[in-house]
Amino acid sequence: MATEANTADDGGLVFHPMDQFIVKPLFSDGPVGMFTITNVTMWMALTVLAIIALLVLGTSKRSTVPGRTQSIAELAYGFVYKMVEDVAGKDGVKFFPYIMTLFMFIVVSNFLGLLPAAFTTTSHIAVTAVMAMAVFIAVTVIGFVKHGAGYLGLFWISAAPLPLRPILALIEVISYFVRPVSHSIRLAGNMMAGHAVIKVFAAFAPMITISVGVGILVTPLSILAITAIYALEVLVAFIQAYVFAILTCVYLKDALHPHH
């Protein structure tokens, strides 16, 4: 429906805020099948290459006094490692490679998505939902394997007064099952919202070509707004990856120590 806004009656401004999220095949015009090479494939491949460049090629010298790239790689490593250790505890460290994988994928695709004309893989609910469901299922399985039925104690809050406990248990169960939803929609929604807002402002930018009188005011304002939102999006790109990873750690902690 957004594409209806581009009707000619407001002077030719074209609003396609959601077009940037369209999945299209790269080499053909046919339908998008499961194994079709699409722009999703391309940007995910670029993500993989960027991660390899940073974490593998960047550290290939193994220098004791690190260079610039190696410093960043070590910084990322130390950041995620400390996060896992602090939030999930010592026994959460063995899940560190998985969380590092998620974090690196999200943060690199968020940043790549900020390139002009890029496709943001993490803005798709399908992508984030798979990751969130994977975390959810893994955490639930870990919880039941480690604690058996005792894992259900997570929902039975023994600190609360007895009459309140069933109600709290119900709320806890609901919030437990809402976790993957909020986990995935938070990331996808943030990415989608930021990019759509940038696109809306970008659509106002060529106003000066339509009407000089209005455009002389609107065009600089919208360019300024794009710059500001872009800066915010750079921040959001990192923070959302951080939040996704840290929430994964929190859920993991619940699975490892349900009685805290």
Binding site: M1, A2, M18, M83, D86, V87, S182, I185, R186, G189, N190, M192, A193, I239, Y242, V243, I246, L247, V250
Partner: peptide, 29 residues
């Protein structure tokens, strides 16, 4: 030591705003 906790809090409260944004998008599109 509490910055992580702050970010978790931000994430939870922000998620609800994102939900409302999502509802708006769903209604629109």
């Amino acid at each position: 030591g509490q910055t992580a906790t702050m970010f978790i809090g931000i994430a939870f409260s922000e998620a609800l705003g994102i939900f409302s944004f999502l509802v708006a998008l769903l209604l629109m599109f």
